[in-house]
């Protein structure tokens, strides 16, 4: 049936028994528990958002493949499903149905297929969709729902947006008992999924470790009223840091190739996240930080590329 020669990518192909398809489905599975937790916490409306988002992504991918005379069976590689899933995880649970539709179409068309499909895109497609929605309809994208069992069921803020009046214990944040995006709230299940991916060597620790480490360090130093008093645990557990660092910054296509490059990438994401969280008008900065660093990846790769052994000039490329 499908072989890994379906992805024509400028990056080095993954040279192991893993096919792209297999990896995609493992990542999807590792994400599912956190999503189910989101559905449990916010109610069935969030399941609707997830399904609509995935369907929108798959359908726009098929349309684009047909338009470009490519084999529509490529859709089975699972990448469109993963994009749809990640996009939905980054949406508030109560958005109107057309928000994930528009987001899915934008993610696939402008984030991925316009560059030539999987392996060619410069930016993370799900984040492209999310940024588009956030800028276009800021009201819907910042109207949060409380967990089903809370007294005031609608219109609340994420913990990050009202850090001043804090009413959450670390345990609430860790389990997901607070308002937020569908897939980002349940930290414990996200971490479980991430551990599986790390254990199966599908992602390496470099990007998440440097990303999260930088955020915690900088928040500790600058996040409080005085130096070295910031609440770094709060900034780790609230918002989309865990989801972003393990599942979106590590995207094969849009991250740097070398270890050194990955660490630079992670630190850059971390610095930008903290700057946007503490100083910007948006409460959350993870997705903008990753998008920004996606734009820098080609330059990072250029300067961390391994030299060809015996090559005369540094300019020779190992491609």
């Amino acid at each position: 049936m499908l072989n890994n020669n379906l992805t024509v990518s400028p990056a080095p192909h993954i040279r192991s028994g893993m096919t792209t398809q297999k990896i995609m489905y493992i990542v999807i599975c590792s994400l599912l528990p956190a999503g189910l937790a989101g559905v449990y916490i916010f109610g069935l409306s969030s399941l609707k958002v997830i399904l609509i988002s995935i369907i929108a992504c798959v359908i726009s991918e098929v349309i684009f493949l047909v338009l470009r005379n490519k084999d529509p069976k490529t859709i089975l590689d699972g990448s469109a499903i993963l994009t749809g899933l990640l996009l939905a995880y980054n949406l508030p649970p109560g958005v109107p149905f057309w928000i994930p539709v528009v987001g899915g179409v934008v993610s696939i068309m402008l984030g991925k297929q316009i560059f030539g499909g999987l392996g060619h895109n410069i930016f993370n497609p799900a984040l492209v969709g999310r940024a588009f929605l956030q800028i276009s309809w800021p009201v819907y994208m910042t109207t949060w729902k409380n967990p089903r069992w809370a007294l005031d069921a609608v219109s609340t803020a994420t913990p990050l947006a009202r850090e001043g009046a804090r009413s959450f214990t670390y345990m609430d944040l860790f389990l997901g008992n607070h308002g937020g995006c569908i897939g980002e709230v349940c930290i414990v299940l996200l971490l479980a999924g991430a551990l599986i991916l790390l254990f199966m060597k599908i992602i390496s620790f470099h990007i998440p470790a440097s990303f999260i480490g930088t955020v915690m360090l900088l928040v500790w130093i600058f996040g409080g009223n005085e130096f070295f008093q910031g609440d770094f645990l709060f900034h780790l557990l609230a918002g989309g840091l865990v989801l972003g660092a393990f599942f979106m910054a590590t995207d094969y296509v849009t991250r740097p190739l070398t270890k050194k490059g990955k660490i630079i990438f992670g630190i850059g994401c971390g610095v930008l996240t903290v700057v946007i969280r503490l100083k910007g008008s948006y409460p959350e900065g993870v997705s903008y930080a990753i998008l920004f660093m996606n734009a820098v990846v080609p330059l990072i790769d250029r300067h961390t590329k391994t030299k060809v052994y015996g090559a005369q000039t540094g300019k020779a490329s190992p491609a």
Binding site: L110, F123, V128, A131, G285, Y288, L291, F292
Partner: peptide
């Protein structure tokens, strides 16, 4: 495609809007 890339970068830069120091 250069303009599309610029569009995507411009969106990423929107994250910085409303900075206060």
């Amino acid at each position: 495609i250069a303009f599309i890339v610029a569009f995507l970068m411009s969106m990423a830069f929107m994250g910085f809007s409303g900075f206060r120091f």
